[in-house]
Amino acid sequence: MNEKSLRGTALVMLGCPQVPIQTSAALYLVHGLRKAGIPVTIAGTPSARALLEVADPERVYLDEVVDLDACIGFIAEGERDFSMSFVFVHNDAGVAYVASLAAMSKGRVHAVVFGGSTEEIVAQLQQVPCEIITARGSHNPLPMKKKLDGVLQWVVSNR
């Protein structure tokens, strides 16, 4: 599976949903990617998935939604991969997930860093081969929305 064959697929990976802006920012990102014609798979914990699925009962915004561990499994086994991945990170576990994905995926990996410890997390990510999108804050999604707008613009212009 090479990068060319992955063109036009995206993964949005969600961690623990305890920080409120994750769900809002993820839904906004999924919407933007889909609008650009890119099918999106969302992987998350049961609670992270339920927050999205309850908010979008008719699947207006959501495409495929899968279990986080299952997603790690099929990427680790080489069964699937994505041309671009966005891993939401607000704690140490999130750093482990983005580092793993950066090692396993042939596509471009982005760490979407948010919450109250962004500086510490960004410092931990310095050795990880990924793009870093960061907006400090836990409750107001607007700073992250602004950052995601920039990324989405780049995605559209580089398709």
Partner: peptide
């Protein structure tokens, strides 16, 4: 990362 041990993928 992704090494399988006890049916778990280590990350």
């Amino acid at each position: 990362p992704g090494f399988k041990i006890f049916d778990v993928y280590i990350i």
